[in-house]
Design a protein around this nucleic acid. Structure first.
Lengths: 149, 149
DNA sequence: TCCGAATAATTTGATATCATATAATACGAT
DNA sequence: ATCGTATTATATGATATCAAATTATTCGGA
């Protein structure tokens, strides 16, 4: 019931935190909306995009690039595989690895969706001028890096 | 397999987007880690915090303040109620509403955790100076607002 | 007064996500 | 050569989250 009374630094950090979270969420939601039409979740889209731009790779690598766990990637790939958008090939040299890659229809799907996705992102950032985007990017990069230090 | 070739504006937007997402995620993860100790998820914590600082309110309002749906709030409250951290009281004037509020033990829990949470947030933003935090906040606010226009 | 629109909460079914545990495989040091 | 450790993927159980439909209730206009 009582408003939080903190030091100046605490209040600054909390306020910045809240704004960062809300901005990230509203941009995600906007970008997300058009994926629904193709029955794709954000992570499914992320995986397809990664495979599209970087080619086939193992699940651990997909997990890293998409900021999620290998456990999660397993189910995401399961679902994409059911729809025949990706395929798994066991690596014969080191059988621990599975190379995941796009099928033809997966390639077609992502090739069709990606430009649309870009348009949504561009539109999301329309309110910011070049300088603001640059600032935002710089500060976010610094912030992100500092978490692992 | 081919790197995306876009206009300057597209590349700027995509790069900023990626950095924003990564920063948001790494800050969330850091803040999240200490909640696990108390068996609280981010949204559960958010709900407790909202109730702690603003007092009891209905589920729709909780959903709005925590950027989620009423369907989701239902299950979150279900789980908090099982642990007797919150309680539901049907509004007798308008029986569509339920007022959710903290129990004594819920109050104790959040009172104990919140200062710790603040410390984590402050630490997360340590790498940024006052000016950078201000900039980040401003730009995020502008960005967030622009999504609903 | 009554009927239809609006609102609050819930349910359902699907997927995501995490933590934890486990299985299979590879590899390095002794 | 083998034993222990590291690595990759999977399984499991719990919760989050959404979309869409449903229920209960209120309220305003005909």
């Amino acid at each position: 019931m009582t408003k939080y009374k903190g030091t100046e630094e605490e209040v600054e950090a909390l306020n910045t935190y809240i704004k960062l979270m809300r901005a990230a969420k509203s941009v995600t939601d906007a970008a997300h909306s058009h994926l629904t039409k193709h029955r794709l979740t954000d992570t499914q889209f992320g995986v397809l995009e990664t495979l599209y731009h970087l080619g086939g790779m193992c699940q651990r690598e997909l997990a890293e690039k998409n900021l999620t766990s290998t456990a999660n990637i397993t189910t995401v790939i399961d679902n994409l595989e059911k729809r025949k958008l990706v395929e798994r090939v066991r690596n014969e040299t080191d059988r621990r690895y599975i190379t995941v890659s796009l099928t033809e229809s997966g390639k077609e799907l992502i090739a069709g969706i990606f430009p649309e996705h870009v348009k949504f992102i561009v539109r999301s950032f329309k309110a910011l001028d070049k300088q603001e985007k640059e600032n935002l990017g710089e500060i976010c990069k610094k912030l992100g890096k500092s978490q692992r230090g």
